[in-house]
């Protein structure tokens, strides 16, 4: 089982496609057009970039620290609701 868990965690890491915590970053997910607040706790967030499904849909990833997480795909702005879930 340990091997299996390790594989799954590796996959989870791969799904993050470079998403990383950088304390005090000026390019936080909070400001990114691909970021949206967590449905319950606005100090967390969701990334809607990354994967698009065959139907044009979105495979989200959770951002645990919305103010201090960033990645190389940062783009300032906002996504229109029609391009969202």
């Amino acid at each position: 089982m340990a091997e299996a868990v390790s594989k799954v965690k590796e996959l989870a890491e791969k799904r993050k496609v470079g998403v990383r915590v950088e304390s005090g970053t000026t390019k936080a997910c909070l400001k990114c057009r691909w970021g949206i607040e967590d449905p319950t706790d606005p100090s967390k967030g969701q990334c809607i970039g990354g994967h698009r499904t065959g139907m044009g849909g979105i495979w989200k990833r959770m951002i645990h620290d919305y103010y201090n997480t960033t990645c190389d795909h940062f783009e300032e702005g906002e996504v229109d609701f029609r391009d969202h879930v």
């Binding site: 299996a4 868990v5 965690k9 996959l11 989870a12 799904r15 990833r61 959770m62």
Partner: peptide, 11 residues
């Protein structure tokens, strides 16, 4: 299918 672990959204 993953022993209770969520690899695909929240890790």
């Amino acid at each position: 299918l993953n022993d209770g672990y969520d690899w695909s959204y929240s890790d």
